[in-house]
Simulated assay, not measured.
Amino acid sequence: MKIRLERDVMADAVSWVARTLPNRPAVPILAGLMVRAEGDTVTMSGSDNETTGHITLTAQVDEPGQALVSGKLLADIAKSLPDKPVEITADASRMELVCGSARFTLQGLPVEEYPALPEMPGTTGTVAADVFAKAVAQVVVAAGRDELLPVFTGVRVEIDGDTLSLLATDRYRMALKEITWQPAATDLEATALVPAKVLNETARSMTAGDSVTVNLSSGATGDGLVGFEGHGTAGSRRMTTRLLDGEFPKVRHLMDIKATRSVRVRTDELMAAVRRVSLVAERNTSLRMEINEDDIALSAATGDQAQASEAIQALVTDHVDGDPSILAAGFNPHYLTDALGALDTPFVDFSFTAPGKPCLVMGLDSLEGEPEVDYRHVIMLMRLPN
């Protein structure tokens, strides 16, 4: 094999594929990154047996062929090369990279021992790349990170015709985003539980093109695959990953909160205040939001060592007659910051029902407008000390 690539193009491609490689491979051969050249394209691929990355680039191919080398080492070398074209030659035993006066030689791994990578499932539909990336980013903040509870580390993808829904929860908060997409069939209905970490990295890395193709296998949940494909100036990228097994909890009904009291404030003002006040919040204690007639007062403390408070003008509305049932609410400050950061609207609406009950957070374009229901974020309130 003998090929020639631009340094930045090569470094970006190798780095992207290397993310799929395991840090401690159970099978040593999985530490390898496969490079194949034919025609006028070079394909690089890698896998950890669960997730597979595959990128195709246009390149000068003088001699076709393939080679398998240590992916992590190749990635480190690629990003350290000078800003000059890279010439790569390889045979079954070694790979040589020449970039300007820099020269590296890597030992080859046995290509014949590399496992066959999964095929991309059939196309399920397409979605605008920027819309998809934004939607995923808004939802993954609510996904769990405890690998001992894998079902909570996933994002439930629900397909109902031209509506694509993304839902995540870690049991203490939930996020739901609904977007319009182009399904392969108008009557299509399907669900899949996709690892949140993989989905987030994939969505962020496929924004160079106009659209992302979603490819969902028709197999059982635990054995199925989901694939994503995007095209851009940096080549064609394909990612496949195994779906998570297990039943996702039924939490959609928690999104249909009927508020007894609502609070509306400027998103940026509240975000800044939460960050300031939470600086003194003791670990595992709540940020207190006291609701008054025309403002909210935030407060937190670390015992007698430090206290902080700040008031923000707000529009407070009671939706039932009589005394309001909720005068103050306790938030996990990190969860509240994540929820506010996921919004892309100038105002935010909090829907409260009763002390200790879930709170619904939605965005607003104007203080008097209707909430944007395509993105809903629910936070379980913390118990406040008496």
Rank of each mutant, 00 (worst) to 15 (best):
L164P: 03
F132S: 08
N23Y: 05
L166T: 08
T124Q: 13
A90D: 01
A135L: 03
A135P: 00
P82R: 05
A137E: 15
N23W: 05
T56N: 08
A67P: 02
A143E: 05
F132M: 14
V155R: 07
L33F: 06
A133R: 14
T105F: 02
A67L: 03
E158D: 06
G161R: 13
A26R: 13
A31W: 04
I55V: 15
A78R: 11
V157P: 00
D91Q: 03
E50A: 09
P115V: 02
T163D: 06
G144E: 06
P118N: 12
E113K: 09
L57S: 08
K84P: 00
A37W: 05
T105E: 03
V141E: 12
A133P: 01
A129I: 04
S70V: 00
A143F: 04
E63K: 11
V42I: 11
V127S: 06
R103W: 02
D130I: 11
L30K: 15
I29Y: 11
G100M: 01
E38K: 10
V131M: 13
M44D: 09
C99Y: 04
A31L: 00
L57P: 00
K84D: 05
F152W: 08
D76N: 08
V42M: 09
A67W: 07
V155N: 05
A67E: 00
K72V: 06
T52G: 10
T126W: 11
V136Q: 11
L149V: 13
T58N: 07
A129M: 06
L57V: 04
A133Q: 14
S101K: 10
R145S: 09
G108Y: 07
M44P: 01
Q66G: 12
M120Y: 14
T43A: 10
V155F: 07
H54Y: 15
Q66M: 10
G65M: 01
S93Q: 14
A128S: 10
P115M: 02
A31D: 09
L109F: 05
S45P: 00
D62E: 12
A128C: 09
T169Y: 07
G108F: 07
P28W: 08
P85T: 02
T56G: 04
P22G: 06
I88F: 00
S45W: 06
E112D: 12
K134E: 14
L68Q: 14
L73V: 12
V151E: 10
A26I: 07
S93N: 09
G71Q: 12
M34N: 12
G46E: 11
L30M: 14
L167K: 08
T123M: 13
R145V: 03
T52H: 08
V35A: 08
T43R: 14
A37V: 05
I77D: 01
P28I: 05
V131D: 13
L97Y: 07
T124Y: 07
I29G: 10
E38I: 01
Q107D: 02
T126K: 15
R94P: 00
Q60V: 08
P85D: 06
P115N: 11
K72T: 09
E158M: 14
E38A: 08
T41A: 13
D91C: 06
V155A: 10
A128V: 15
E38Q: 14
L167P: 01
L148V: 01
A26P: 00
M120R: 13
D160R: 15
S80Y: 02
V141M: 06
G53F: 04
A26T: 13
A137C: 02
T56E: 13
